[in-house]
Design a protein around this nucleic acid. Sequence first.
DNA 1: CGGCATCACTTGTCCAAGGCAGGTAAAGTG
DNA 2: CACTTTACCTGCCTTGGACAAGTGATGCCG
Lengths: 148, 148
Amino acid sequence: MSEAPRAAAAGPISHTIFRLARSHSLLAGRLLREVGLNPGQEMILFLLWDRGPMRLTGIADELGFGDSAGTTRKIQRLERAGYVRRVPDPADGRATLVEPTAAGNSVRPRIEQIWAELERLTVAGLTPAEQATTLAQLHRLEENVAKA
Amino acid sequence: MSEAPRAAAAGPISHTIFRLARSHSLLAGRLLREVGLNPGQEMILFLLWDRGPMRLTGIADELGFGDSAGTTRKIQRLERAGYVRRVPDPADGRATLVEPTAAGNSVRPRIEQIWAELERLTVAGLTPAEQATTLAQLHRLEENVAKA
DNA sequence: CGGCATCACTTGTCCAAGGCAGGTAAAGTG
DNA sequence: CACTTTACCTGCCTTGGACAAGTGATGCCG
């Protein structure tokens, strides 16, 4: 893994984000495979555990999914995996609410462990103070990029 | 886009990397669509511009592609786009060298502009000193994640 | 109240990425 | 000279993002 100077010269931070993103996603995928999830699906579960049953549009808005069609299919996969259930929204005949199943709830501790492990590996060697500044800077980058 | 506290609690930095990665890739894709590239392809061109003709394995190693099959197809797409050409390696009958075409070279200034724009949008509002520390910290995260 | 735009979701299709499995030809090795 | 390894390619599967089109339910306006 030597340098790729031209890309680095043209945009060193973008370049590093790009590489970090792929490695991080691969690592997350490797850790999550144990529970049969692919990277991203655990985000939906975290959201449901926090907020209770949500409709698809709510999930999509919250997680920044661009496309509702993609959201449908993500939920279908989680449903096939048995972690999530779909119930009609009593308040709106068009909508369906998504909620974790018992199986979904039962993997929660394990998923939280996996995320803790992922975080541990990611920030290895950084002091708590460094972690805090890193997080703050990542948030600034995220805001910039989301806004653009 | 409010918070997703549970994921943030379980791994705030991982969580932010995840979101940043997707937004950044979407932004890069939007900027690059003008020249008919998808995010990632420009990395290959940067590499070739820096190093001259390379074999597929060299490209894959350098950019961290896991799979040689995927590399083959990425190059095929760049080839179909007309930006790259494949020539047999005179030194090794098994290998093919990949090099930019005239069309590939002609988009170079534009791609570098696009990357500069991407970087500008990404680091908007950060002082040069902040950019330097951000870059250093991203590199540390990348090393950690690549190693794990 | 009826008509109509809007909303929530679903399905189909396309393309790109990653991964695995298997195949071919050339190169290297004992 | 066999045998293994290397470099690459192809096929196939799953995921992801995007666009298009369709269905049923809801909301609103005249």
